[in-house]
Write a protein that binds this DNA or RNA. Structure first.
Length: 566
RNA sequence: GCGCCCGUAGCUCAGUUGGAUAGAGCGCCAGCUUGCGGAGCUGGAGGCCGUACGUUCGAGUCGUGCCGGGCGCACCA
């Protein structure tokens, strides 16, 4: 049991003796200022039940409770019973927790025995991989990391849109406008995306093209050449490029699903739904009438018999269930598909699908001053963003490290720019729109990846310079900021648990930032090295080592690898 | 028209399943530092939490109306 959990348990045990209502660990709150105490129990409800004045009851309880192993003072402040941690003992337990568990510090067990499959990283082949896709993949991976840290068994499932109207459009555009063009291996995937955009514009100007593209789509679905071969070839171009991007961003799916493999099964499900009476024909197409659930009509097959997103999603859910049999299926998908998922889940329920289905949604990513849309042509691809940022970071890094090789500078700059992108995607609530300001993302000041990475590198540098080994001895850590750091470190497992239960990743980002701030304040107040009190120096080294390990653990959940130097 | 989301400091955003005096970063102003990595730290100014009612011992948080913004609502994904 982690230090904080154990302390809370002691608080609970004490409270239960004197209170006539049930108290659970969730009733223990944190006071707004730690000068008031570390834990607080508001007595309002208990007072009501016991028919007493809240402030009086709080006082009454407070005088009865004595100190325990990790909890020291108990005092009433108004209607609250406040508890203060017993400092040397509690701090020692915190450091012990971190040192014992190391990279596993913070992992909790709420999810043990439960299996979840998370659908994320769903780019479409033949289209560009832009910032919106980054948000999806990074958020999804971070949720997966956090669920794993919470004890769940998680299947990370990427779902690739390798068929559908967009593919037909891109291939049609290739033949129509770029027949015979040579495609360079390095850029061919992006070239496909450009052709897709070009084709989209062409269709807007000429309605007749729609029919031509519909023919292409049918040919691909029917596996007819030359379209089918062209599809197979170009699909690989996109997949190769996605794999490279995933690697850079630490996106690591362990299962790959493709729209092309669920298309046929999807159509079969639809025809079974027709015979079962779950679906019906309407205006030539097939729908599921969800008026009863107030969800309108769910279109599951087009009137020309070709499939839709919905067709494939039905089969996908079934396939995932067959492959992995998870207790829950989670879908990390853009908020604009909320209705689609409500309809999909309602339909699956009608088909007798019983596992829990959750849509985790996120909003879009804008650039300052402009909403991003592929139609307006102001989307920014992952590669462009990364390269623009790297370029500027190379310049800055060069100025600071004149002795570094170009190769080392380029590597560090790339790592920092990727970390900067990831952090911007995760530091904010998923439900809110991100305004991606590149300058802010790369800034070494503020709520940014570079600030955090710098702090970790700085700790590493101190540790490297120290001639003595760290040795935890909390008795030597008497500075006020040292106690604050220990308390902060103790919160980490709770942060993970809450983030995992609510899929609230930004809370991890905020917490790591607060820890970094606290460390930097400490660093300026206290000189760690060249201390004549060797035991104290070693104890401080142990403390900052614990800070570094915990920051690293937190950043890892955010897909960010720390750097030794930068 | 119906539905979902959002509205908190000049800007970008937090606010722990309703709890104590509403916070952070950036920017601005005033300082510290020849440093164990200053890419940092300290202090300051800056808020009728969109608005009006309601529920509650207690509302930025819950409910309803209104105002303002975004998104979605059958053959796109």
């Amino acid at each position: 049991m982690y230090a904080r959990e154990k302390a809370k348990q002691e608080v609970l045990n004490a409270l239960r003796k004197y209170i006539e209502v049930d108290v659970s660990i969730d009733d223990i709150e944190t006071p707004p200022d730690n000068k008031m105490g570390d834990f607080a129990y508001p007595v309002f409800q208990a007072a009501k039940k016991m028919k007493k004045n809240p402030a009086e009851l709080a006082t009454e309880i407070a005088v009865k409770i004595g100190p325990s192993d990790l909890v020291d003072g108990v005092k009433a402040v108004g209607p609250y019973v406040n508890f203060t941690l017993k400092m040397p003992a509690f701090g020692a337990k915190v450091l012990e927790d971190v040192e014992l568990k190391k990279e596993k510090y913070g992992q909790v067990t709420v999810g043990e025995g439960k299996k979840i499959i998370v659908d994320y990283a769903q780019p479409n082949t033949h289209k560009e991989f832009h910032v919106g896709h980054i948000r999806n993949a990074v958020l999804g991976q971070s949720i997966i990391n956090t669920l794993r840290a919470s004890g769940y068994e998680v299947v990370a499932a990427s779902y690739i849109g390798d068929v559908g109207a967009h593919v037909a459009k891109a291939l049609w555009g290739m033949e129509k406008f770029h027949k015979g063009e040579e495609f360079d291996k390095e850029t061919r995937a992006q070239r496909l995306g450009q052709i897709y955009t070009e084709a989209t514009k062409a269709v807007e100007e000429n309605e007749d093209y729609k029919l031509e593209i519909a023919e292409v789509l049918k040919a691909i679905e029917a596996q007819q050449d030359p379209w089918f071969s062209l599809w197979k070839k170009t699909r690989e171009w996109s997949l190769d490029s996605f794999k490279a991007i995933f690697k850079e961003l630490s996106i690591e799916p362990d299962a790959w699903y493709f729209e092309s493999e669920v298309e046929k099964p999807g159509k079969e499900i639809v025809s079974k739904m027709l015979t079962d009476g779950i679906a019906k024909k309407s205006e030539g197409a097939v729908i599921v009438d969800l008026e009863k659930e107030d969800l309108g009509a769910f279109l599951v097959l087009k009137s020309d018999g070709s499939s839709l997103y919905a067709t494939k999603d039905l089969a996908l859910a079934m396939k995932k269930e067959k492959d992995h049999g998870a207790d829950r299926q989670i879908f990390v998908v853009d908020v604009r598909q909320s209705l689609h998922f409500k309809q999909l889940f309602a339909t699956l329920n009608r088909m007798g699908f019983e596992k829990q289905l959750i849509h985790i949604y996120y909003d879009m990513v804008n650039l300052p001053g402009a909403t991003m849309s592929s139609r307006a042509g102001n989307i920014i691809t992952y590669e462009d963003l990364r390269d623009q940022m790297s370029e500027r970071l190379i310049k800055e890094t060069k100025e600071r490290h004149e002795d570094w090789s170009d190769k080392k500078i380029a590597e560090v700059a790339k790592a920092v720019s990727i970390a900067s992108i990831e952090f911007m995607m995760l530091r904010q609530d998923a439900e809110s729109i991100i305004t991606f300001d590149m300058d802010e993302a790369m800034s070494f000041d503020g709520f940014t990846a570079p600030y955090l990475l710098y702090t970790v590198a700085r700790i590493g540098s101190i540790e490297k310079k120290a001639k003595k080994k760290a040795k935890s001895a909390v008795a030597h850590l008497t500075h006020e900021k040292e106690a604050e750091l220990l308390r902060k470190l103790s919160e980490y497992p709770e942060v993970i648990e809450r983030a995992g239960l609510k899929f609230h990743i930004s809370a991890i980002a905020v917490w790591v930032f607060e820890l970094a701030q606290l460390f930097n304040e400490y660093y300026h107040d206290v000189r760690i090295l060249d201390d004549e009190d060797l035991d104290r120096m070693r104890a401080r080294l142990a403390l900052i080592g614990a800070v570094r390990v915990t920051m690293k653990n937190g950043l890892k959940l955010l897909n960010i690898e720390t750097l030794k130097e930068m």
